[in-house]
Amino acid sequence: MSAVLKGGPTLRAGRGRRLRVRASAAVLVAVLAAVLLVPLLFPLDEQAVDMANKLHAPSAAHPFGTDDVGRDVLLRCVYGLRVSLLVGVVAALAATVIGTAVGAAAGAAGGRTDRMVMRVVDVFSSVPHLLLGIFIVAMFRPGVWPVVASVGLTHWLSTARIVRAEMLSLRSRDFVDAAVSGGASRWRVAVRHLLPGVLPQAGLAAVLMVPHAIWHESALSFLGLGLPTHRASLGNMIQSARGTLLAGDWWPTLFPGLFLIIPTLAIASLAGVWRERINPRRRSELML
């Protein structure tokens, strides 16, 4: 046994995935640093209008150029992403809490309650959620919170479905029967035995929801229904730059677009890796 042990055949899942994780993590760290530090380090006014320098192409002074009223596109991108991330994270959390509560209640109760709750979910799902979201923001004055509410109230449906399905599959396991036989109440079975099993799924759903919520916010702003037009948000920026794009000035559209796409891809990619990890079939560390 003193001989050098030979390596077993290794599974080749490793390298590409590790690269993806590192790149995504780097992007997210950079994004977070930018949105948190730039406003502190460079307390510039992102709304400062400078008509003398309008629509400058990217240069040393303005790396991303300036927009049609001379505002710095880089600075506005950072502020816009800040707002979009805030809206995205808060809205995704709200949607997840609602979805988990509804899904867990339906899944734990089962039977008639479950059927009724899920029909309500179906009805909500049958309305395009952008339409529903527009309806909600239209009831309030433009601002951050109506947008959060609009996204949160329209995006819990899929989480509710995931959580409920997971609860139902756990409910039929023998360990739930054992708990019932051991005198556990409905509440205890739900909270102590079922819910902990679905939380990783719900957490994953929340992370996957963040990019979705960011895009939703941008879509609402693009339609002029989201944040007030002077607030820098990625959707607002793309919307107001539409005219200049036709004149051949690409930078006021391209950079906010990239700021929208790249961080959301990074989040989605990390969430994908997480999903693989919590999938029990892939957790075969050792089979004895």
Binding site: A3, L5, K6, G8, P9, E285, M287, L288
Partner: peptide, 24 residues
């Protein structure tokens, strides 16, 4: 009995051990 290593032996013969296994 279960856990005595007999299934690991089978996996080793088929080259189906997980990556953290070393054989000799």
């Amino acid at each position: 009995e279960s856990g005595c290593g007999k299934s690991v032996l089978a996996s080793a013969l088929l080259g189906l051990l997980p990556a953290n296994a070393r054989t000799d």
